[in-house]
Amino acid sequence: MANAEQIAAQILSTKSLCVSSSWLNTFLASSQRNVPASALTKTALFRVLASDIRQSLATNPTSLFPIDISDPAVQERRIPGPIPVQVLDIEDIGTSLWSQVEAIERVERGEAIRGREIVRTVNVGDDNEGTENESSNNTGAAGAPSASGSSGSGPHRLILQDANGTKAVAIEMQCIEGISLEKLPIGAKILLRNATVARGMVLLNPNCYTLLGGKIEALDKPWKEGRKARLLQRIDSMGSEAN
């Protein structure tokens, strides 16, 4: 059975994650004995990616955001990293709020968008499913919202949190594979290297961004369930301000 130092070294070398020794000792104490070292390391990594990094990762100055990262008075700076962070929120700022609400409601009705068609899922048996297609001139071309209620087109705005609990706003400056409402769960872990921070916002591009994966189920599920209500609340707030 691998010891804590071996597992920590392996995760650090492969994922640049410095696992807390106390967290790792607790993990090992609850693990079965006589488990191969490789399997134990994979399980530990899976648990880290599903955890709150404020509890599972050790901290040092180079792996954390600057305390004043959100200061808009700082015109531009670069944070070398690598800095592991977790996603607390994601928003498609390239799609209107109403379009996002309508996409969610299509999903609630059992519909999805495929190109210029509405595809409705219907049950044809206990173990089989079929689809019913309806042509639509109002759904837009390819790239319209999918079954999850997101076009994935972006750009996206993220709220990121480091292992010390410091939060920062991040903006997708270039299209990044894996950043979309349907692909990036709340609690997903990201590694930032040589990221530029301008006026308090982290500017994301493929060169500074590495998706490690994972999610925090206790955060992801309520976030998804409450998304429509949050969008409607924002629309109401905009209407109130206009009046």
Rank of each mutant, 00 (worst) to 15 (best):
A39S: 13
E111H: 04
Q174T: 13
T166N: 12
D162I: 13
G81Y: 00
L204H: 06
G226V: 08
V197P: 03
E225L: 08
T166M: 05
A8I: 13
T121Y: 10
E5P: 04
R47F: 12
D236Y: 10
E76P: 00
L64A: 05
F27T: 07
L28V: 04
A37Q: 12
R234H: 12
E129M: 08
E129R: 03
V87K: 13
G110H: 02
W98V: 05
S237M: 10
T95L: 14
S21K: 14
S31R: 11
S151Y: 04
P155N: 07
E134W: 05
P80Q: 14
V197H: 03
I190P: 05
E134N: 09
S30Q: 09
G187K: 00
G94V: 01
L40F: 09
L64H: 10
N34A: 06
E117I: 08
R193P: 00
D236N: 14
V202A: 12
K189T: 13
M238F: 15
S22M: 08
T26F: 04
L49T: 13
A37P: 00
I69T: 10
A103W: 09
I113L: 07
A144W: 02
L57K: 01
L184F: 09
I104T: 10
I171Y: 11
G226H: 12
S30P: 00
A163R: 13
P82A: 00
G200M: 00
E241F: 15
I235L: 08
